[in-house]
Design a protein around this nucleic acid. Structure first.
Length: 997
RNA sequence: GGGCGAGUGGCGGAAUUGGUAUACGCGGCGGACUUAAAAUCCGCUGGUUUUACGACCUUGUGGGUUCAAGUCCCACCUCGCCCACCA
């Protein structure tokens, strides 16, 4: 008897498959299609690892299963070849990425073939081949034409020593991975794809996908939708000017002076109250000095009365502030004034007597809006600023914040801007300018990791204030790096009593905490006390951020927080100060890389720096072979050093090419479509072929595919808009494969030396079949699993048993040495009810297994399917003690068909040895017949009060009464029933009798 | 902090719809074959208890629903993974 020797049969069948092109997918098939694919690999120099083996064992078992089940199956393979490793290798060794890639692909392909995977190699693609990236560039052009590819400024990591841009993962503790020097963030022009346009569609589409919930959740989280409101805060204006007619004199001392500027509006005439100076050709509003902490409004009221006699005034609001510097000749000082502007309405024109002194120098006048210019203020624009406020027009300076909790509006005690926020530079007062600038610079240097690790809040006061539009309160504005520039508006309103982060910030910088929300269970006084304790740092150290009832919120007090959210935004919206807003965490996709080894971006610039698409007939923009792959001093890729590359003529005009290349994710965002039509030289694909094969029915990939799969989805949505596909979701079912861990349960890594080399496993005598079957058997496909050599041995032993069983049968059958036929088939013996053994007859075993394996394959439960085949083998071993007969040939053949998706070489070999002319991978998958599964008896569990007390065997056609009678009569059951009358008897047909007493 | 998932023998795991928990494999023990070993084959293998039949306990912990719970509900504990100052 021949021993199982995979090293003999595996090469034999691999050769047959290759020569017969057994797995070529037919475009014009009339069969239903199944498109099965694993995420294509990056062919590294190290060759296949255990993870690859896992992915493609899952893919191949599924592909083979559907192929045997009458589907036209597309199971392609390609290479994701662009990327940093090849480029770094080239910089180090001088071996071109093209050459290294070629070698690696050849090695990967060879290794895949040794696994015996059923791939249609005619459809092989390679993203770094011009035939492929021509179309990647073409797709870029389509996106560009629709405004979905654009250039914008963006902060990038920059190493000043290497003079190169670094990716996030190349920055280690704020230092360059290569030279160890401190890196900084630099503003650079970068290319983006506008994926945010699809945010809502990407989110909504998830609901209908047959993907693992965890993967869907990760995408939802990545998209990060949140609904809230944008709220505008007027900056308390404080424009500064120097009186040009009265310039400062450097030899004179400075004095500070606080003043008010009082405006009175008469609604009847729509005029404004001013005073005209009698001795000078000046007209101005009422002006007066403030002493100490005096109330500006009271001062204004008094000054108006003193200077003009008007006394019935209604206070409207404080408008803001103006600051000026000038030389006051009469006092011989440089004066720095800080003017608070206050507006009143005239209720009636009753006047008091003005003092003789005042009367002598000035008289009141009523002016139209257009006439209102202060003669003593030289800068007309600054003057107008104050009047724009009088007119109720929009303020010139505002800060827009995003919040999900507008209900806490009345609890705002400060604002925080991201340090990078453009308003920071504009609003910061001179006094704080140095500190703010220092902080800003320090923040830009911090790596993201540092920002993450150091959770301690940092920030600086800008010196500026804004007005809370809900209650008119003055609110200080801070800059802090816990606010992220790219999210929302890069500015937040802080309600420390009701937000953890604001809380921390307030505590650290000793800012006020104002409670405006109570849990319903505690009345308002209680919570204030709690908060008081919190601020004292006692028992409580956190904010209350749940829903509740509003307090201290003006007319909104008493509303529930969700109710308030709606109402306060609507209320503010009437004044143009707020609007409902949905934001997404997801940013546009940055695709430009200052790297050589990628698909060149098909853009050129004219003399004036205008962008021009490379025309279609000049595609592809070929990546030229160069000698030195190092990026040059400009921080651009090595391509910039090639004048032949950079120079291009478009429509007769000489231009300079873009030297950035595209992110590898761009290349992998459409490869699943290219497989449907991989050799098309005229188009990216023929929609007819793509609409036949795609979307992918079964896609296998690792957990790091969240972004990859978002990008694939976005592109597909775009293609659908262009009419290039009929569908907008590219992947119908996704299987997230788990990792293979080392035997000690830790991650495999070269440095630890605990990796498993699949080729070594094959060569050491186990063979590809045992390797594949073991990998699928160890755990369900989506679970992590630790490698076990003993486990592999067990599966190898199982395959050996299958082999020996078939050998035994074949040898006996060839020699025609079967004894007289034994009645081991239910089809004959079972029906006649001759022998009890017939319940375990050949057909029953096989059909039971067919059913189990088929159903398990449909739900990708490979481990249990293989377990069923092991069980089947064990049972056949017992059965063969009674001798073989002719029925075994069919039974064993069927078993080979079930085994083929896992151990295709052995199945093919044994299927052939069993005398089948067909190839196992083309032969029809067996179906089960229920008639073999029904036995003439069944086993019923007997429970008393829910506890198992006995099992009884009854004829299948026994009726309920009979079964209950048998159950009650059972010795052990009767013991527990103890002669009592059952209250109730539950009978679950074919399974259980439960006697309740 | 947020999200997702998982806790079942000595180990990996099975139990698909609430219906005989521990399939299958590993490991362990015993046996057959062998001069011997390997390989192969056969049997036993959750715990406590019992001569035995059996009984009692057991799916992270504590409650609940139900004739019946690994499975459903509530609370808690532990672990893993992903995202993470996202307002």
């Amino acid at each position: 008897m021949k021993r199982y020797n995979p090293s003999e049969i595996e090469p034999k069948w691999q050769k047959i498959w290759e020569e017969g092109e057994s797995f070529a997918a037919q475009d014009n098939s009339t069969k239903p299609k199944k498109y099965v694919a694993g995420q294509f690999p990056y062919p590294s120099g190290a060759g296949l690892h255990a993870g690859h083996t896992r992915v493609y064992s899952i893919v191949d078992a599924t592909a083979r299963f559907y192929r045997q089940n009458g589907y036209e199956v597309l199971n392609p393979m390609g290479w994701d070849t662009f990327g940093m490793p090849a480029e770094n290798y080239a910089i180090k060794t001088g071996i071109s990425p093209q050459a290294a890639t070629k070698t690696n692909i050849a090695n990967f392909k060879h290794q895949f073939k040794r696994l015996g995977v059923s791939i249609d190699w005619d459809r092989e693609i390679n993203t770094s081949h011009p035939e492929y990236y021509k179309w990647t560039q073409w797709i870029f052009a389509q996106l560009y034409k629709k405004g979905l590819a654009y250039r914008a400024e963006n902060y990038q990591w920059w190493c000043p020593i290497d003079k190169t841009v670094l990716a996030n993962e190349q920055v280690e503790n704020g230092k360059c991975w290569r030279c160890g020097s401190e890196v900084e963030k630099k503003k650079m022009r970068q290319w983006f794809f506008r994926i945010t346009k699809y945010a809502e569609e990407l989110l909504a589409g998830l609901d209908d996908l047959d993907w693992p919930e965890g993967v869907k959740a990760a995408q939802r989280n990545w998209i990060g939708k949140s609904t809230g409101a944008e709220i505008d805060f007027e900056v308390e204006d404080y424009p500064h000017f120097i009186d040009k007619r009265n310039p400062l004199r450097s030899d004179k001392p400075f004095t500070k002076r606080k003043i008010i500027q009082a405006f009175v509006h008469d609604p009847k005439t729509n005029k404004y109250l001013f005073v005209k100076w009698k001795k000078f050709p000046w007209t101005s509003c009422v002006i007066g000095g403030i002493e100490g902490d005096e109330d500006a409004v009271a001062v204004a009221r008094r000054e108006i009365l003193e200077e003009t006699g008007y006394k019935n005034l209604k206070f409207e609001r404080v408008l803001g502030k103006l600051r000026s510097e000038f030389y006051a000749a009469n006092k011989e000082v440089n004066r720095d004034t800080d003017a608070t502007q206050v507006l009143f309405t005239l209720e009636n024109d009753e006047r008091a007597k003005v003092s003789a002194e005042e009367d002598a120098i000035q008289e009141p006048v009523w002016l139209d809006r257009s006439e209102c210019q202060y003669d003593d203020m030289p800068n007309y624009d600054e003057t107008m600023l104050a009047f724009e406020r009088i007119d109720g027009k929009r303020p010139t300076h505002k800060i827009t914040t995003f919040t999900t909790r507008p209900d806490t509006m009345f609890g705002i005690t400060f604002l925080v801007l991201a340090p990078e926020h453009p308003m920071v530079g504009k609003i910061t007062t001179e006094e704080y300018a140095r500190e703010v600038e220092k902080y800003r610079a320090a923040t830009l240097k911090k790596s993201d990791i540092e920002r993450q690790e150091n959770k301690e809040k940092t920030g600086v006061f800008t010196g500026a204030y804004v007005i809370n539009p809900a209650n008119g309160e003055r609110v200080p504005v801070w800059a802090g790096d816990f606010v992220i520039a790219g999210y929302g508006t890069g500015a937040i309103l802080a309600t420390p009593a009701h937000d953890e982060r604001d809380w921390e910030f307030a505590v650290k910088f000793n800012l006020p905490i104002k409670v405006v929300l109570n849990p319903t269970s505690i009345d308002s006084k209680d919570l204030s006390q709690e908060i008081q304790k919190m601020t004292n740092g006692d028992e409580f150290n956190h904010a209350f951020h749940d829903e509740g009832v509003m307090v201290n919120s003006g007319e909104f007090s008493g509303l529930s927080s969700p109710e308030m959210r709606e109402k306060v935004v609507k209320w503010l919206a009437q004044r143009g100060a707020a609007r409902f807003k949905t934001t997404y965490k997801m940013r546009d996709w940055l695709i430009s890389r200052q790297r050589y080894w990628g698909a060149p971006i098909p853009i050129a610039y004219d003399k004036d720096g205008n962008e021009h698409l490379i025309p279609d007939d000049q595609l592809p923009v070929i990546l030229p072979k160069i000698d030195d792959y190092k990026p040059d001093d400009s921080g651009r890729s090595a391509l910039a050093k090639s004048p032949e590359f950079t120079k291009v003529i478009i429509d007769g005009i000489e231009m300079t090419r873009e030297t950035d290349t595209m992110d590898g994710f761009a290349c992998s965002s459409w490869y699943l479509l290219r497989y449907a039509d991989p050799r098309n030289g005229q188009h990216a694909w023929d929609p007819k072929k793509v609409n036949f094969w795609n979307p992918v029915d079964y896609y296998v990939g690792g957990e790091h595919s969240t972004t990859h799969m978002l990008y694939v989805r976005m592109w597909t949505m775009f293609f659908r808009e262009l009419g290039l596909t009929d569908f907008s979701e590219p992947i119908t079912k996704f299987m997230k494969n788990g990792q293979i861990l080392a035997a000690d349960g830790t991650k495999m890594s070269k440095s630890k030396g605990n990796t498993i080399d699949p080729l070594e496993v094959i060569d050491s005598g186990y063979g590809a079949d045992a390797l594949r079957t073991y990998i699928l058997f160890m755990v369900p496909p989506d679970m992590d699993a630790a490698w076990s050599l003993q486990g592999l041995g067990g599966v190898h032993r199982f395959l050996g048993r299958v082999w020996n069983l078939v050998q035994e049968y074949v040898e006996l059958s060839d020699a025609s040495r079967f004894g007289p036929p034994t009645s081991c088939s239910v089809s004959e013996a079972g029906r006649n009810g001759e022998k009890e053994r017939d319940n375990d007859g050949l057909n029953r075993i096989i059909h039971k297994t067919i059913k189990k394996v088929t159903n398990d394959m449909r739900r990708s439960s490979f481990n249990t399917a293989i377990a069923a085949l092991m069980e089947c083998t064990n049972e056949l071993y017992k059965l063969k003690e009674n001798g073989f007969n002719d029925e075994w040939r069919k039974a064993l053949s069927d078993m080979m068909l079930l085994l083929a998706p896992f151990a295709p070489h052995m199945a093919a070999e044994l299927f052939e040895q069993l005398g089948n002319k067909e190839m196992v991978e083309q032969a029809t998958y067996p179906t089960w017949d229920e008639k073999y599964l029904v036995s003439d008896v069944m086993t019923i569990a007997v429970q008393v009060n829910g506890k198992l007390r006995a099992t009884i065997t009854v004829p299948v056609d026994a009726d309920r009464a009979e079964i209950e009678k048998t159950a009650l009569a059972h010795e052990n059951a009767a013991k527990f029933i103890g002669g009592k009358k059952p209250k109730k008897i539950i009978y679950v047909p074919g399974k259980i009798v439960n006697v309740v007493i």
